[in-house]
């Protein structure tokens, strides 16, 4: 009985809409024109159109690179690095800890605003001033390297979270193991590869699941910074759905993309269920 209100809300705003998405994806529903009033059932036409639509495939590829480089590589490597560097107690440790966590607390829209100043083109842009010290000419960052820049911004936002998780993983590894390794004359690198990494695998795996899910769902940051542009270069699949549905008014077609994304998420979700090993 106590779960019922939650179940009703989840049904109304998650399960039922998912059903609606599947149905809508088989119609030509649109926000404007005759198809807005009388959508026609068109079966799998949206899906056949989808699979031959190269902008859809491009947005999948962009999503893949975005998740791979920002969440899986960037945040993980830098987060693990900071966790290792901040493992030992020293005077400035809380200070560095707080700094690395700070970007994590910033809402997506504000992050986009901050970075639009950082990445501003022209010789007075902050990043352009910085690279000028190294003799690099001013760049139009968001025009020339849009996807790489979005990745840089997202890494910036996620190092802190990765660091916290890695930190908890590291603190579970017994100090005696390192002691023993040092006795046997192992170098720091060997200790890292033979002790730290293998024992950290569960933590890393869990982190990868969580961060893949959250990174695919990112909307505000990219929408506020580039709206998927220039020319679709940063249009990850969530942004693509939004632009197709509310920008081009193709609700039916947008829903077909959404259903593909839903299925994909559910596949990741089943891995998640297994990882969490729900005990009853």
């Amino acid at each position: 009985m106590l779960v019922l209100p939650s179940a009703i809300l989840l049904f109304a705003f998650v399960l039922y809409p998912s059903g609606v998405a599947i149905y809508t994806s088989m119609t030509n529903l649109s926000l404007t024109g005759p198809a807005a009033l009388n959508p026609r059932f068109i079966g799998f036409d949206n899906y056949t159109k989808l699979f031959s639509d190269h902008t859809f495939w491009r947005s999948l590829v962009i999503t893949f690179w975005f998740v791979l480089f920002s969440a899986i590589i960037g945040q993980l490597v830098l987060g693990l690095l900071s966790a290792i560097l901040l493992k030992r107690q020293f005077a400035l440790r809380p200070f560095f800890n707080a700094i690395i966590l700070m970007p994590n607390a910033v809402p997506g829209v504000v992050a986009a605003l901050m970075w639009s100043s950082m990445l501003a083109s022209g010789e007075y842009g902050t990043l352009n001033k910085i690279v000028a010290w190294f003799g690099v000419d001013p760049q139009r960052w968001l025009v020339t390297f849009p996807l790489s820049m979005i990745i840089v911004v997202n890494i910036w936002r996620g190092i802190g979270f990765a660091m916290i998780l890695m930190n908890s993983g590291l603190s579970a590894i017994s100090e005696e193991l390192y002691e023993a390794a040092r006795m046997d004359g192992a170098t720091t690198w060997q200790a890292f590869r033979k002790i730290t990494l293998p024992l950290l695998v569960p933590t890393i795996f869990l982190y990868l699941l969580v961060s893949t899910v959250t990174t695919i769902a990112i909307f505000a940051l990219i929408y506020a910074l580039t709206r998927g542009g220039p020319a679709g270069a940063t249009e990850i699949v969530g942004i693509y759905i939004y632009n197709q549905s509310f920008g081009s008014y193709q609700l039916g077609y947008g829903s077909a993309i959404a259903v593909v994304l839903l299925i994909f998420s559910l596949i990741i979700g089943t891995f998640y269920v297994r990882a969490l090993k729900v005990e009853v």
Partner: peptide, 27 residues
């Protein structure tokens, strides 16, 4: 229903909100 409910909670958590925004608009 405990186990199915818990499983579906996890599955619901992984759905990216942009995927549901169109049907949500209709609802």
């Amino acid at each position: 229903w405990k186990r199915p409910f818990l499983y579906s909670i996890i599955l619901i958590r992984v759905i990216p909100p942009p995927a549901l925004i169109v049907p949500l608009y209709q609802v």
